[in-house]
Nucleic acid binder design. Structure first.
Length: 260
DNA sequence: TCTGCATGAAAAA
DNA sequence: TTTTCCTGCAGAG
């Protein structure tokens, strides 16, 4: 379930699992053999998540400090446990092993070893991440305020806002009764402030639980209001939830609660 | 067994 | 705006 909360959760887990340890790295699948060799035998000094990007920081080697950059994309997945690791099976891009634990990575969109400078360049291209302390919501507000694009598109644009994916965008729009097609620049600043604060709350809860739960108590046990509920009655007003493609992604919304 | 779909994003056009 | 890439799984047959 890779939206930002998943990545921040992984960063914490990997720090606990591998932090401070010397790591043996390999690519049983063979697609990342050269990259694995670059970090093999290095010490993992820390981890870091920005939006949907995960970074492992490895201690200074002969070639300087190295950063492992992973983006899970739609399909990527990590699995881990205590040693010994199972026999590698299928397309296993990267396996990391310490004295105590192993960590496997499959199907990522990005898996590369980069410099700290390249890491900073990636972060610079991203908008503020609601899950990071000190994230500048005004920076996102400014972009939204001068955009004619629909707010539903802007919320998913990682240059505007980092970490929000298809579930959070649909749910936060519903929770604030916002028309998905409303242009960013027509969104009152107070509405944006409320959306940002809500994202901070929802996504932090997501980091804690590992799930995206966006319903209020009175609407449980349903976990979400609109996401993947096309054709079902709105939990608030009973209107059929609608689904449509917006810039190539499925958008779910309630045409009544979120009327223009 | 086969098909379609998925919480993503970059490249091509 | 469309295509492409990466993998796994549920549901259909």
């Amino acid at each position: 379930m890779p939206e930002g909360h998943t990545i921040h959760r992984l960063a914490k887990a990997h720090r606990a699992l591998l932090g401070g340890a010397v790591v043996r790295a390999s690519s049983p699948q063979g697609r990342f053999t050269d990259g694995a060799a670059l970090i093999d035998g290095s010490t993992l000094t820390g981890t870091d998540a920005v939006g949907k990007h995960l970074f492992h920081h490895y201690a200074d080697g002969p070639a300087g400090p190295k950063v492992l950059h992973v983006h899970l994309g739609l399909y990527g997945k990590f699995t881990s446990s205590t040693v010994p690791p199972p026999q590698p099976r299928g397309a296993l891009r990267l396996r990391l092993i310490t004295d105590d634990h192993w960590l496997d990575l499959r199907g990522p969109t990005a898996c590369e070893v980069i410099t700290t400078g390249e890491r900073d360049a990636i972060v610079d291209r991203l908008g503020p991440d609601p899950l990071r302390r000190g994230a500048d919501r005004e920076k996102a507000a400014a972009r939204i305020a001068r955009s004619r694009a629909p707010i539903a598109g802007l919320l998913m644009d990682q240059k505007v806002l980092a970490g929000v994916g298809n579930v959070y965008r649909a749910e936060v729009l519903f929770r604030h009764q916002l028309d998905p097609y409303q242009a960013g620049r027509d969104l009152p600043e107070s509405a944006w402030d409320a959306v940002w604060d809500d994202l901070c709350t929802l996504m932090r809860a997501g980091v804690r639980s590992g799930r995206i739960i966006t319903t209020e108590r009175e609407h449980r046990p349903a976990r979400n209001y609109v996401y993947r509920r096309a054709g079902a009655p709105c939990l608030v007003c009973g209107t059929e939830i609608r689904v449509e493609l917006l810039s190539g992604r499925t958008l779910f919304w309630c045409p009544s609660c979120q009327a223009p």
